[in-house]
Amino acid sequence: MKYTQTQIDLRRKLLSLYYGANAGHIGSSLSCIDVLIALFGIKTDAERVILSKGHAAAALYCVLNHIGEIDDLTLETFYKNGTKLSAHPSANSFLNIPFALGSLGHGFPIACGIAQANQLLKNSDYVYVVMSDGDTNEGTTWEAAHYAVAKKLSNLMVIIDKNNLQGFGRTMDILGDTANNEVWSHIGFEVIEADGHDVAQFKERLQLLKGSSDKPKLIIANTIKGKGVDYMENKMEWHYLPMNAEQYTQALNSLSTLNNA
């Protein structure tokens, strides 16, 4: 897989934001930024992407900056006092940040509500919700899963950003594989897996999935936490750590060699 220029540019922007803010959650944002690029490349103006893993807000901010919804000056306020861009998405400021999210397990039920409303309104809009491995531990995830199937929310597209790491360990070692294809299929979702870093492939698979059945849809996006910065990849600590100057330089160097392999 070759990274597109957008994937590289937005990663550079993301690192600059986090370095400027001396903030963590870098690994989480690098894990899902390609899925967000793909979703914002697909969705219509009326459709919404719900970032249930709100701790990856910076990835969302960079994508919204890329599409022109958040201007450069506003983006620079990330993490600063008086900002609209808190570490987790805040409410009531941007069209494409419809909900404050960051307490895990909230985005999926909200997305079910939007899907149900779209059905009542008889429009053909989809709603997309991006969950983390940690999200799939939450009880509301399983309430919403059964709800989505029972209420036939075929216009719901759930994406699990499955990097196999969560807050304090590997997903498998904590509650087991809660983002498992068979489990979700058995509940009644139409499930596919996709490379969560290959934007073109992800978009293609998502479009194919849309027309596939009347079931709610789920994509297990296989991802790598910290993707694109070699020393961060698959390392739990990059859920939390900010970069020092040396690490920032190293990270930028890592990005500049991305398509060399």
Partner: peptide
């Protein structure tokens, strides 16, 4: 919990 989340999503849509 899901009921209230769903309700919020529907309320967002009007």
């Amino acid at each position: 919990q899901n009921m209230v989340g769903v309700a919020a999503g529907m309320a967002y849509k009007g």
